[in-house]
Design a protein around this nucleic acid. Structure first.
Length: 456
DNA sequence: GCATGATCATGC
DNA sequence: GCATGATCATGC
């Protein structure tokens, strides 16, 4: 079939739905060797019949459409997710700064994407993966406003001579992910002598997951903003504005003001408060479009009178097996902090706990935060390296009067993060790589670091 | 007084 | 039954 319109393109792509790569491949490319991008090449050559290229033009340049073949996975819960971020073109730091968004390399090549989703299955050979669905991605106008802003954030960092501090977490939907075999894949940047890690524009995994769910699951999500608002304000500014009327109010006062009944025992109280203030009452936070696409997770922070939280902030349990196998860039910690933005909902007490244990916290502010790349590469990595060494040498478990102590990195060992137990009780244990059992541990952000972020 | 080990409460 | 957010508690 001669492809002269986007409809033709979609017709051909949709004809492959339900087929495996093996069934499509006419070149025996898949049998030859395990070359990366091989699945995309099969589609280019055998389905569309054109030569593989790495031009800066879009694949179907006359139609302005770029072809992407990308995996989805089925979660334990049965829901579907993008298996990875969608990697677009490599950023040429020297050149991108000379462009506007409209003339940028990103926009030139990725204005419209023909996305072919296939199902990744751990136990299967990649030849046998099945094409699920093909969809033309054109960015909705609201998304495009956010993406423009993201592009600007990335380019501003290059202009400031700090391309080496770019992190995927800096932006909402359009990320700049590391690309290259290792940390030696460095590139020059125009306003600094420091070589920066090679990065590519990418659509975040969370953005792709939201997109996949809309098209494969018909999953419904709700937005709290719109393109008009987004033309003049960033997402963060909009959030701050929406929360500003409630500053210095208690949760009870806020609930009265927004007409929402709080049940003190309800764990989701603050989450409900957020969705109500955003004008989408009853929506789970994960179903808020902007939170879902940008992978924004909310955390409540309660500051003491002195501006420091009483407790450190916990995250998920540590996977000790991964810790000794993964590289830092593959690690649980790197991925959590590189890929997540946090919406901190900050309350503060006016009295100390000893003055009044039943004191009320007052709402202070919201802020969007992601861990800066400079911290990820220093303190976070330091903790990871130290913990890994302890695991490789064998964790020393020492019975004391207050339980069993260990020599994993402690709060005093690091300015930012540490390891501490989080379990049902001391008997709730997991196996370490060497077979010893340890009370389940989580990683935490130090409360002093939280204070620094919040009070910047 | 605080660091660090222990554990509670809720929701899925 | 387990993950997660939150908080307790005591030896140093």
């Amino acid at each position: 079939m001669i492809i002269s319109t986007i409809d033709d393109l979609l017709t051909v792509a949709k004809g492959a739905e339900g087929l495996t790569f093996q069934e499509i491949d006419t070149t025996e490319r898949l049998l030859s060797r395990k070359n990366k991008g091989g699945l995309g090449q099969v589609i280019e050559e055998s389905l569309f019949g054109y030569e593989v290229n790495s031009s800066s033009e879009a694949d179907f340049s006359e139609l302005g459409v770029e072809l992407k073949v990308t995996p989805v996975k089925i979660n334990k819960s049965g829901s579907v997710s993008a298996k990875e971020r969608l990697v677009l073109n490599i950023i040429n730091y020297m050149e991108e700064v000379n462009f506007s968004f409209e003339t940028s390399s990103f926009w030139k090549k990725n204005k419209q994407l023909l996305i072919m989703f296939y199902l990744w299955e751990a136990e299967k050979n990649r030849n046998d993966y099945t094409i699920l669905k093909s969809v033309l991605l054109t960015y909705p106008e609201d998304d495009l406003e956010i993406i423009k802003n993201d592009w600007t954030v990335i380019v501003e960092k290059i202009k400031n001579g700090s391309a080496e501090d770019i992190s995927e977490g800096d932006t909402m939907y359009l990320g700049a992910c590391t690309k290259g075999a290792n940390r030696n894949s460095l590139r020059a940047q125009p306003f600094s002598e420091v070589p920066a890690m090679q990065r590519a524009f990418s659509l975040k995994q969370s953005y792709m997951t939201t997109f996949v769910r809309q098209h494969l699951d018909e999953h419904r999500i709700v937005s709290f903003t719109n393109k008009h608002e987004l033309r003049s304000k960033s997402l963060e500014e909009i959030l701050i504005e929406k929360f500003s009327p409630y500053i210095n109010l208690s949760l009870k006062e806020i609930s009265q003001s927004i007409g929402y009944t709080i049940t003190p025992t309800n764990k989701a109280t603050v989450a409900n408060m957020i969705s109500t203030i955003l004008g989408i009452r009853g929506t789970k936070l994960d179903d808020i479009e902007e939170f879902s696409k940008a992978n924004i997770k909310f955390k409540t922070i309660r500051l003491e009178k002195n501006g420091i939280p009483r407790e450190h902030m916990s995250f998920e349990n540590v996977d000790f097996d991964r810790w000794v196998i993964d590289s830092f860039e593959e690690s649980q910690f790197y991925n959590r902090f590189e890929q997540t933005k946090f919406l901190f909902v900050v309350f503060q007490f006016n009295e100390t706990h000893s003055e009044n244990p039943l004191r009320t916290p007052y709402f202070k502010k919201v802020l969007l935060w992601n861990m800066p790349e400079s911290i990820i590469q220093t303190e976070l990595k330091k903790m990871w390296l130290e913990g890994r060494k302890v695991l490789e040498e064998g964790v020393q478990l020492t019975p004391t009067k207050r339980g069993i102590s260990n020599n994993l990195p402690k709060a005093k060992d690091n300015l930012v993060t540490h390891i501490r137990p989080k379990a049902r009780n001391a008997e709730d244990k997991v196996a370490l790589p060497d077979g010893q059992l340890i009370t389940k541990q989580a990683y935490w952000l130090n409360k002093e670091y939280i204070a620094e972020i919040v009070n910047n």
